[in-house]
Design a protein around this nucleic acid. Structure first.
Lengths: 341, 341
DNA sequence: TTTTAATATGCAATCGATTGCTCAAAATAT
DNA sequence: ATATTTTGAGCAATCGATTGCATATTAAAA
């Protein structure tokens, strides 16, 4: 069990040259002759040399690590985005450190700190639900480290951002529900300080108005949008005898809970109540009936997020090219919201 | 936009002491007086000093990074295990680098290599489905770097491992199906070189035998166990007119596909066909009927995996304490497999 | 043949933190 | 008052790779 790893000095020793030459040979520096390069490569392979990225990072100041912060990797949307980021990053010889904030502000702050100490070359993040203050991200910018936000963004920061047009997605969905006969549509939403919920709600309201329907505040319910929240809220609405014939949720999880409760209470979906969620989580296609939802274009989002990141990374810090990319989401119509079923 | 980060030398300069002293002060070394320590701490805070882990890693040879390789983070089981690992790791001041192999052998090999180059202090992994050769993991061991495997393990390696008792889980499930009247149970399985599928199949066969039923090779179907595989296989079985009254799948995804096809073909579940999956993915409780499945105890598994890892890390490399932990999974009985529905 | 220009490599400093060894000053013991 | 400890810090090397600035050798030009 030999623990010692080969270094460029070991190679140098064997060939009776200096470490500098070895280093240059390995980096394909034109100042080194092909003959030497070949010899170096050969010995490197022979003694199983593996570069020490730590040493290189210290010297160059570049760790080739990117910190990625998501609320939770356990969601189709986030893991797809991560995959998109990872693909581009890996092809450019970067590794990503995935960290989860679990939607907890404190954890997010600590994570940012830890990533900075690990000397990541940049950070890509989607903000936690409970985050109301972004000083920790400001610190990142102050250090001149590239930062790109996606999906859960904030306007308090001058950074590159990638989002979908949440207003559009919600508008399309609600318009679709109305076209299918809904007149009293309940809306599940969450903390309005979070851009995505705010925008989706605006889309909901605008669609109602444009179709000559009234916005009834009693139909707009705030929660954490988990499955249990959907269940609880749906039951409360049913119990309160409020009149409704549709539900549009900002999350697939809470609409799932609502669907369960609706069925438990004998409501026919979509005959009596039409419903739609947001996020296109895979399970929405497994339910009975399958649930209409909005696809967030996670793959392109990951790709574009990574592209924006590397653009920033390669830019001369002076011309900080903070730009906002907005993708169009896609309404996925399934049985839960249509008449002809 | 100042990019320069403070170092211990900056602190030393301000206080007219040496960097060594600062370093010791920050590490609370007893050889430094309290007065000096206080001054150092004060200046450190004042100039917003943040330790450079890279430099420290180079010198100490410890990066305080743990590489975690999973087939995909986009699965409830894996993300739960990751969470368990992360919690313990963070509390000990370690960060984890999560990498996904996407169940691809080549990617796994590259990932291991990349993690080694990043000089992680150890690796925790669940092996990719397509991996048939574990030389890349052997290399990890040869370097004396702690390696712990969970769930998808291999016997070709002398390392600490954490698994559930797959045989037990499968046995319980199949026994349950039989007790509920099934006599011809189809089994969806995958590559038998992967321990979990092999064990689950053994459990399936043993349960049949112990109940006086025959093992019919025609009922054992190999695939990748994705949803589409489940759909395809189920349709093929139906088309082939093979007699069956139950399906036990080694994966929740393929049983989901099977359920869809069964319903599309007019089969009543569970009245005519009883089904059960494995994994307790959240969506199994959302389906109609909800699907009986096996919970893999992901939270304890993550915790125990991390514990085993740190045990190895702290052990004197001589007494390598490779140990295997086996957790009991839990059968979650739902409507898809019971009579009284 | 001498000068100039390429070409190939070496030297030594550097990145920031850590640590074994040395040493001066202060405290205690004889 | 001298000898011995104890305490607090400094010096310099180290981790492994990189790089600006020589330098030696060879080739081409004058």
């Amino acid at each position: 069990m030999k623990k010692d790893r080969a270094t460029i000095h070991d190679i140098a020793l064997k060939l009776n040259i200096t470490a500098s030459t070895v280093s240059r040979a390995l980096n394909d520096n034109p100042r080194i002759s092909d003959a030497t390069k070949k010899k170096v490569l050969k010995v490197a392979k022979q003694i199983n040399y593996q570069p020490n990225h730590i040493a290189s990072a210290l010297r160059s100041g570049k760790s080739r690590l990117i910190g990625v912060i998501v609320p939770t990797a356990n969601r189709n949307f986030f893991s797809s985005v991560i995959r998109g980021i990872e693909e581009l990053a890996n092809s450019l010889n970067y590794k990503i450190i995935i960290s989860q904030s679990y939607d907890d502000f404190e954890k997010e702050v600590q994570t940012v700190e830890a990533l900075l100490n690990a000397r990541v070359d940049g950070i890509i993040a989607s903000i936690a639900k409970t985050t109301e203050n972004v000083d920790h991200f400001k610190k990142v910018l102050e250090k001149g480290i590239p930062l790109v936000l996606f999906d859960r963004i904030t306007n308090a920061l001058e950074v590159s951002q990638v989002v979908i047009d949440d207003h559009y997605g919600a508008y399309q969905t609600v318009d679709h529900l109305i076209k299918n006969g809904c007149k009293r549509i309940v809306h599940f939403t969450s903390n309005p300080r979070i851009n995505i919920y705010h925008e989706r709600r605006r889309g909901y309201e605008d669609a109602l108005k444009d179709n000559g329907l009234e916005v009834d505040p009693n139909l707009i319910i705030f929660s954490n949008l988990q499955l249990e929240d959907g269940r609880r809220i749906m039951q409360e609405i049913i119990d309160s005898k409020i009149d409704f014939d549709g539900v549009f949720s900002s999350s697939d999880y809470s609409i799932m809970g609502a669907l369960q409760v609706l069925k438990e209470n004998g409501y026919k979906v979509p005959a009596q109540v039409k419903i739609a969620g947001f996020g296109n989580e895979p399970f929405t296609s497994f339910t009975e009936p399958p649930i209409t939802t909005v696809d967030q274009k996670s793959i392109p989002m990951g790709k574009i997020t990574a592209e924006s990141f590397f653009e920033l990374l390669n830019a001369d810090s002076a011309s900080s090219v903070a730009k906002k990319t907005i993708l169009k989401p896609e309404l996925i119509i399934r049985k839960s919201s249509t008449n002809n079923s």
